[in-house]
Each structure stands twice: as C-alpha cells, then as structure tokens.
Write a protein that binds this DNA or RNA. Structure first.
Length: 460
RNA sequence: UCCCCAGUAGCUCAGCAGGUAGAGCAAGUGGCUGUUAACCACUUUGUCCGCGGUUCGAGUCCGUGCUGGGGAGCCA
C-alpha cells in the first residue's frame, strides 16, 4: 500500500492498485448501496471522489460522516463511471480518523470573505483560501528562484532593530519589561534597564542592513516579515507583512527600474504557468479579467514617467481631483489610480521625485531638486514597489541627514559604508501581499495573509 | 485618526409608512437516485449588536458605544 497525495492521483496516467490517501471530507452523497465521498488533502484544489460500498464493515459509520472529518482510505484508483471526473477511488478499507462536530462552521456553499476572516483558523480549508495559500507558497519559492538564478545572495536582516528611525513609518516597541514594573526616572523611561540597554523596535525595513551586505556579497535580497505600527485602516495595509528587498551594487536607478519590472513580470508569469488550476478559481469567481490582466503585465512594457511629467499629465487632464497637483507635493491615491488605472491602463513606473518628499538615503540628482526614487504603480492596487538609487556620496548623505533632522552618530555604521569602498547602488521594496493581491485579484490584503494583523485585530 | 455604509436564525439575506419576526441554505428525521453546491418531504432554531431615550407600543425613529466593510491619510 503506497501513500499518495491527491494531486498526483488526479494526474495519474493509469489506474493504480493498492493506494492510500489521507484527507478531510468535503462533501458526501449517499446512493442506495454505496456513498460518494469527496476528500481533499490540500495538495490541490480538486477533491478526489471515493466510492464506499455498503460491503465495508464500518459502512454505518461512513454513512454518518460529517463534513470536515478526517479519513484514511485504502483502495484502488479506477476510472470513474460518472461524468464529472476522470479518476475515483474504489475503497477497500475506510478508516475514520476523527469526526468533525456538526457545529463545523464551513458549509457546502460560498461564505463571505468577512465571515471567513472571523474563522481564519479554518478558512484555509475552503477552496478559495486553499488556492490563495498554495499560490503564496509557490510564489515564495519563485522569489528565491528568480534571485538565485540572477546570482543574488539571500540575506537575513534583523527583525529586532536598535535604529529608532529607518525612515518608514511608526515602529512597534520591543521590550522584555512588564510595563507595570517599568522604572521611571523623573517621568522618563529608564532604557538602561532594558534587555538591549537601549530602545528596540521591530524592523520596518531591512534596507540599511542589506546595503551593508550588498557592498560585501554583491547583489543581495531579503524576504521576510516587516512591521508598521501605523494606524492604517485600508484594504491595502497590514501591521505585519512580508517584503522582498533586493539591493544591487554598481547599479543606478535605471537598472533598478529594470529589475523591478522584471521581478513583477517573472512572478506573474510564474503564477500563470505553475498555478493554473488555482488561478482559474480566481478568474471564475473573483475577477473575470484576471488572466487577461496578468498576461498583459507579462507581455507589455511598463510605462516609465518622470514625476514632473506625471504632474503635467495630471494638470492637463480634465479629471476633477479632490487634491491639487503641483511639483513638490506628493501624489495622492486618486492621482496614482488615474495614471495607472485610467490614463495608461497598465503598470507605471514614476521616477525622479522631488527631494523634499523623500527620505534621506535616496540619491540627490544633479538638478538638486529631485532624487533618484522610483515607485511602481499597478492598476487596482497602487504602489507595489518603492525604491531608489542610494546616496553613495558621504558628504551629500550627511547633508541630507541633517536636513531630515537625523542624528548622524546613530548611523555611524551606515555612514562607514560610504567611507570604505562606496559604490553606486540601488534597491527597492516589493510588498509580497500586494503582489498576491495582483496575482489573485483579491481586493483585501487580509485575505492573502494567513492570520492578518491590523489595528485592533490580533486574534489567532 | 477622519468621512460614508452596515450589524435580524449556524450562514446569506428580506422585513416597504413604528403594532413584539420570515425565506433560502445548513442541521435533524425519512425517502429516492452513478451522484457531483445531488434531489424530494417533514422538523428544530432568534437577548432583531450593546446601552439609553421618544412612544400606549421600537427590528423599524433619535442619541451613544462596540464590531465589520468601503474611502482618505501613512506606505509595501
């Protein structure tokens, strides 16, 4: 008796004798002398149909099987006499591992995403969420494959950081001290009592660390969790999310845009090729245009547009915007949506943003007005990638830090990299969940991450 | 954090102008059938989100809080 995944049985070329499968009952239909039981093991979207005849010694128990129950089936893979499927299993022995209580919340019908969020521990057992998380797994692998094939090294940057400002939003504080017992001196927290002897936070980006390794190993990337304590309540933001951050040496903003575009195209193409069956579900039930959109992303060039020209387009458009557009002001969501969703109807790379609205580490252009920053905007999602060429000149970088009100001493090691063999280098951050939203057509970030963390929500 | 919308059975929803609740699905029982979101018949189920108010009377109107959704800001 050989153990099989349902995926491999459904793809079998020939009938097979003496096989074993393990899984959970998705649905059951009784006939006069036997039952049809569909079992799923998570290996693929489809269930396999089991024929359990009343000759089986425990048939009375099998007849009472509830949805969600765990079973092990021994039998033969045979061609199905019915029309809905090629293969089915003729059960010779049918072990009931455990019975799911009839209060099992998942029913044989479509549930709303909002309801399924309240049972996030059970939702991966549904077709839709099973598909999401299989795709999530496949694309995680694809990320490593993409970068490894290009000669990038994978770097693990710290999750806990001592930098109190990495220039990307509010941070979660990390402490081992019970707040009830925290010692205060003149009303001020005494950080010398802290685990690290100074304030610590959860990382908002691995970029600064990755830069150090790029200057040693060459092109590198990180792929890990990232934390933002912003009180963001939108369908595109989570407090904990996964980010891919490549950092390339001897590389300018144009190379950076090239890599960003290639990455999105590769991962989209990978999903189209390797996750066909799961993607079909989304194309059928979530977004009818999905496959078309994804194919367009793979095949057509992204628009590249300097910020200044984007401002011009927006000013000349007849569209009525709530917020005014002018050089030096950051573009609002409505502007980005207009450019990517309506004007070009495809991904747009905006670059050369005004210096005044971007962080200290971005390279100052010759005009001294802009920095070598780039954002990749995608219809329906907005910003998928944010990146830049880094300021590699020590004197300019120090000046920018002063302008941005940062304490240089805290960044001594970062500045060291500009003293010892500094080179032009660039990188970006790609939001993994936003990529999954793009690939699946799912509209809410909470539905592409196993247990989403958002303001006021840390159940599970 | 701000603006808008919603909160009725396990799930999805109806309940039009204030008169104390209903459908489909699920669940339970029986029947039928190589079925496939199976089908047919019968049966069960409710602090109408919480609190306060208006009224003879509130699921329905008003206030407030909580939860969820959408949009904005912040960004990936």
């Amino acid at each position: 008796m050989k153990k099989y995944k349902i995926l491999s049985l459904l793809n079998s070329e020939t009938p097979l004798d003496s096989i074993v499968i393990n899984g959970w009952v998705r649905t059951k239909r009784d006939s006069s002398s036997f039952s049809f039981i569909e079992v799923n093991d998570g290996s693929c979207l489809k269930n396999i149909q089991i024929i359990a005849e009343n000759k089986l010694s425990n048939y009375n128990d099998i007849k009472k099987l509830s949805i969600g129950s765990a079973v092990t089936v021994y039998g033969d893979l045979a061609e199905s006499k019915g029309s809905g499927q090629k293969w089915e299993i003729q059960a010779k022995k049918f072990d009931i591992i455990s019975i799911a209580s009839d209060s099992y919340p998942l029913q044989k019908k479509r549930h709303t995403d909002e309801y399924l969020r309240t049972i996030a521990h059970l939702r991966p057992r549904t077709n839709k969420y099973g598909a999401v998380f299989r795709i999530r797994s496949e694309l995680s692998f694809a990320i490593h494959k993409f970068f490894r094939d290009k000669g990038f090294k994978y770097i693990h940057t710290p999750i806990i950081t001592g930098s109190d400002c990495e220039g990307a939003g509010e941070m979660f504080k990390v402490t081992a001290i019970d707040p009830e017992k925290a010692i205060k001196i003149n009303g001020q927290s005494d950080y010398s009592q802290e685990f690290f002897g100074k304030p610590a936070n959860l990382t908002v980006s691995g970029q600064l660390s990755a830069e150090m390794f790029a200057l040693a190993l060459g092109d590198v990337y990180t792929f890990g969790p990232t934390f933002r304590a912003e009180n963001s309540n939108t369908r595109r933001h989570a407090a904990e999310f996964w980010m891919i951050e490549p950092e390339m040496v001897f590389c300018d903003i144009n190379d950076d845009m090239d890599l960003g575009e290639q990455t999105i195209k590769y991962l989209t193409g990978y999903a189209l090729k390797e996750c066909k069956e799961d993607l079909e579900l989304f194309a059928t039930f979530v977004d009818k245009e999905l496959i078309n959109n994804l194919e367009n992303i793979c095949s057509s060039d992204f628009i590249r547009l300097p910020y200044e020209e984007a401002v011009k387009i927006l000013k000349e458009s007849k569209e009525k915007f709530e917020y005014e557009v002018s050089f030096g002001k950051d573009l609002q969501a409505e502007h980005e949506n207009y450019l990517a969703g309506q004007y070009f109807k495809k991904p747009v790379i905006l670059y050369n943003y005004p210096k005044s609205i971007k962080p200290f580490y971005m390279r100052v252009s010759d005009d001294d007005k802009t920095v070598a920053a780039m954002d990749i905007l995608v219809p329906g999602i907005g910003e998928l990638i944010g990146g830049s060429q880094r300021e590699e000149r020590l004197d300019v970088l120090e000046l920018r830090m002063e302008e941005c009100g940062l304490i240089k001493e805290n960044y001594w090691w970062y500045l060291d990299s500009r003293r010892f063999g500094t080179v032009p280098h660039s990188g970006f951050g790609l939001g993994f969940e936003r990529l999954l939203m793009l690939v699946t057509g799912i509209k809410n970030i909470r539905d592409v991450i196993p247990f989403p963390r958002t303001p006021g929500n840390i159940e599970f």
